[in-house]
Amino acid sequence: MNTVPDIVYALSTSDSAVEQRLRERLATAAAESGLLDVAYRTLDTPIGSLLLASTDRGLVRVAFPRQDHDAVLQSLSEQISPRILRAPARLDVAAREIEEYFCGERTKFDLPLDLRLSKGFRRSVLGCLVDIEYGHTASYAAVAKAAGSPRAVRAVGTACALNPLPVVVPCHRVVRSDGSMGRYAGGPEAKSILLTLEAAA
């Protein structure tokens, strides 16, 4: 009987070809046996190596290097399931769309999303963020109003900071009322790169 360890993750990108094939076989066997609840991979981008994670519902997490990928994986194992495995193939479509975005070839993502990590007002804010069009920005106050709570400007800032799907759910498009960028989970340089990329399109 095949079994998969409860938590299986390693972020090394220096695996040999044999190790990569073994990982792929393990991921395939785990998925076919219903033992793979969270698949993940990393993706090199202009704003650093992003961690991508998905469930059978869709993309569930995108994390920046500064958020500590190992800590994010540990959190996913606690919040969703300990049956987590590096399985890049499951995230091929997500990786391709994000690469197309950074190449200026995509302005909207067509990915199924698993939003279970956000609840209540924060979930409502995420719904408003996807309505901010590529190349445009909205103030925290405008997002608060769109989410149905005009006075909840600070709560919108918190929702953006805790957005589990940055880049794909574009919290980088939310700025202060005076036009300044405000804070960003990926850091000010990452936010600037994203806004500059979209402005240049």
Rank of each mutant, 00 (worst) to 15 (best):
M1W: 12
N2K: 14
P5R: 09
P5S: 09
P5K: 06
I7W: 10
A10G: 14
L11W: 10
T13K: 14
S14V: 11
S14Y: 07
Q20N: 11
R21A: 09
E24T: 10
R25F: 13
L26N: 10
T28N: 12
T28P: 06
A31M: 07
G34D: 07
G34P: 05
D37G: 02
V38G: 03
V38N: 08
L43T: 04
D44L: 14
D44P: 12
D44H: 12
I47C: 02
A53T: 08
S54F: 08
T55K: 01
T55R: 02
T55F: 01
D56Q: 11
D56G: 03
V60Y: 00
A63G: 04
F64V: 05
F64I: 03
Q67D: 10
Q67C: 13
D68G: 10
D70T: 14
S75T: 14
P82W: 03
L85G: 04
R86W: 05
A87V: 00
P88M: 06
R90A: 15
R90C: 12
L91I: 04
D92N: 12
A95T: 12
I98Q: 01
G104M: 09
G104Q: 04
D110F: 11
D110H: 14
L111K: 02
P112V: 00
P112L: 05
L113M: 02
R116C: 11
L117N: 01
S118P: 02
K119S: 15
F121H: 08
F121A: 02
R123Q: 10
R123M: 07
S124C: 12
S124N: 11
V125R: 01
C128R: 05
L129R: 01
V130Q: 11
D131E: 15
G135N: 09
G135E: 11
S139G: 05
A141T: 09
A142N: 09
K145G: 11
A147K: 04
G148T: 02
S149E: 14
R151H: 14
A152N: 08
V153E: 08
V156G: 01
G157S: 05
T158N: 11
A161N: 10
V168T: 07
C171I: 06
H172W: 06
H172M: 04
H172Y: 15
V174R: 01
G179A: 01
G179Q: 01
G179T: 00
G182R: 00
Y184G: 02
E189G: 08
K191P: 01
S192K: 14
L194D: 00
L194Q: 00
T196F: 04
T196Y: 03
E198P: 12
E198S: 10
A201K: 12
A201D: 11
A201G: 15
